[in-house]
Design a binder for these strands. Structure first.
Lengths: 338, 338
DNA sequence: TCCCGCTGTCGAAGCGCTTCGATGGCGTTC
DNA sequence: GAACGCCATCGAAGCGCTTCGACAGCGGGA
């Protein structure tokens, strides 16, 4: 391995000069800078990460805690993780991948060992066990998600309430009066991962304002579960003309089962989804949907966290991204006389 | 932050003694060990990762390169990544997440900066640009996937050829004579990510041995694409009674479109898939399938890489996991007189 | 002409840990 | 009872880098 000292010798300068050329923290004459840069290139020098971290108390690593559960919401999670990683690299940071499994323990470990300069935590529950630690941590942390108490926290998330409202509004504009919500699995609500509840809140409030009838049913992603849910919905509310789905796995079964039961989408029944673009665009009927902007969320989280590492930005901030409803083919004017 | 020196003072011993207690590299009396361990606990000491890495030239970090493309095979990739991370933690290692985007450059960076002790590389292409570097690297590397030339490499992968053969065998056993293969998108074959080709090879060879007629068609995951592919298949080979699908995204459309075209699965047409368990189990007709054992692959890759870090194991090794075909409901006896 | 204040460079200290060699005290062995 | 060896512990060096203070040289203002 090539060291700083070797580069210095090769360039005929002192080690500190090389260091300053690399960091740009002191002015160096153009001539010297070029000589050093040439040596760096010729020798293929890469600074030793450990030594650098030790000397500067900065690792240039951001820890990313992703949920271990691979049973839900996987593509979005993956997309966010990738977006975070890519965004971090453009700022010179690497990502250390942690699973939620270790829980609060992981936060302590990272904090204590100085392995990372900051953390990004995904899949935060409303009353997450990690929150107290993150609040008092000596290193910045950014949450992707929105716990119930955001005091002293930096959060980035889609404004799911607005997303819910947008769905209700869109369907109301199309003349629908009775709407059913096919939600995430009951376990998701029990775990209290805010986003599902917030969507529902948004749906409910806007529905009340607009005088819509709203029915909510949690639902597993399986055909059996969607099928059962559908029957119950049409039993209870035969006048239902529109669905809002927030459950990646359930969208395909929903469309298939509606078709099977003789209801055409969007002629007889409209469907609006809250899901990733890909899922919406590739469904059997391209779905009018509010996208979960994974890329954007990842990018914003990285920006927030780096601002904090560099001592910029406030101690507390909630970044809520505005939802955008994309009109595709699955939602249309309510059937007349419905 | 608590340092080794503080622990040493607190326990009334020298710093080196604390270090030896922690590493177990020299024998320490039970009394001293306990005293030190108590101090460690009381002070909440965590060794500084940078200092440790610098002094020992060992970072206890494994770099994991995942494909950036989020357009294919996402759930499996995520599952493998999670399995790798979890497995690594049980051995005391953390995972540094790299995207394929940086390509060979990333390999050099990790190597030069001593950021990680080893690498695990996913989504290897048959003739990957990173291979020469990985072969000559001073740090161990393990591939998940199988390039064409495995000389000097450690590889872990599912035996996709055997998987293909198993599918052919299963369908032949059920009396099918004409089989169509719905493959990955053409781009996947062009990129030459071996697994798709190897499955095909296995299918072809076993089909030849058993006298089956085989037709292969690459296919996008969209309904339009699957629909077009299906028509062409039935045009060319009206006698087709069975499908092998290797394309996560296409399975659902395939089942839906077969049903729509009046062909019942499995009564009229059988389907066998090569895909993750979840996809197979939750399909509208639970799929008889060969699973991609993501967990197992992640675990084995970590074991291999740690063996190499510790100086165990050979310089070259190919671990091919045996496929297991799980019988579900989508494949049945070929219709009589077909 | 003298002194001041830059700019560009260097030397040395130190980040927190591992590890090598040295050492002191003990029980054994003949 | 002297010599030996072993076990447990210590001290010091050094891993490769950053960063602080020092200083040489030079131009400009008075």
């Amino acid at each position: 391995m090539v060291t700083l000292a070797e580069v210095a010798r090769h360039a005929g300068v002192s080690a500190s000069t090389v260091s300053y050329v690399l960091s740009g923290k002191r002015s160096i004459s153009a001539a010297t800078r070029e000589r050093v840069e040439t040596s760096v290139r010729q020798l293929g020098y890469h600074p030793n990460a450990g030594a650098r971290a030790l000397a500067s108390s900065k690792s240039n690593i951001i820890a990313l805690m992703v949920p271990l559960r691979t049973d839900m919401y996987v593509p979005v999670m993956m997309e966010i993780a990738m977006a975070v990683t890519t965004a971090a690299r453009t700022h010179g940071y690497d990502i250390l991948l942690l699973t939620g499994e270790e829980g609060a323990q992981a936060v302590r470990r990272i904090e204590g060992s100085a392995l990372a300069d900051a953390m990004i935590v995904m899949d935060v529950e409303l009353d997450d066990e990690r929150l107290p630690l993150l609040r008092t941590a000596s290193r910045p942390a950014v949450l992707i998600g929105l716990p119930s108490d955001t005091a002293g926290l930096i959060c980035v998330d889609l404004d799911f309430a607005a997303a819910g409202a947008a769905c209700a509004q869109h369907l109301a504009d199309l003349g629908h009066r009775e709407i059913a919500v096919i939600g995430e699995a009951a376990a998701v609500y029990e775990r209290r991962t805010g986003f599902a509840e917030r969507t529902l809140t948004g749906l409910r409030e806007r529905s009340r304002e607009l005088g819509l009838k709203l029915l909510h049913r949690p639902c597993e992603g399986s055909y059996a579960s969607v099928s059962a849910t559908l029957s119950r919905v049409f039993d209870e509310r035969p006048g239902t003309t529109a669905f809002v789905v927030q459950n990646e796995a359930a969208t395909d079964p929903l469309l298939a089962l509606l078709r099977q039961s003789g209801r055409a989408v969007p002629e007889d029944v409209s469907v609006v989804a809250v899901c990733p673009e890909q899922v919406a665009a590739h469904a059997s009927v391209p779905l009018t949907s509010v996208a979960v902007p994974a890329q954007e969320m990842g990018r914003r989280a990285v920006e927030q966290v780096i601002a904090r590492i560099e001592g910029r930005g406030s101690q507390e901030e909630v970044v809520l991204l505005s939802p955008e409803l994309t009109v595709r083919e699955s939602a249309a004017q309510a059937p007349v006389g419905a």
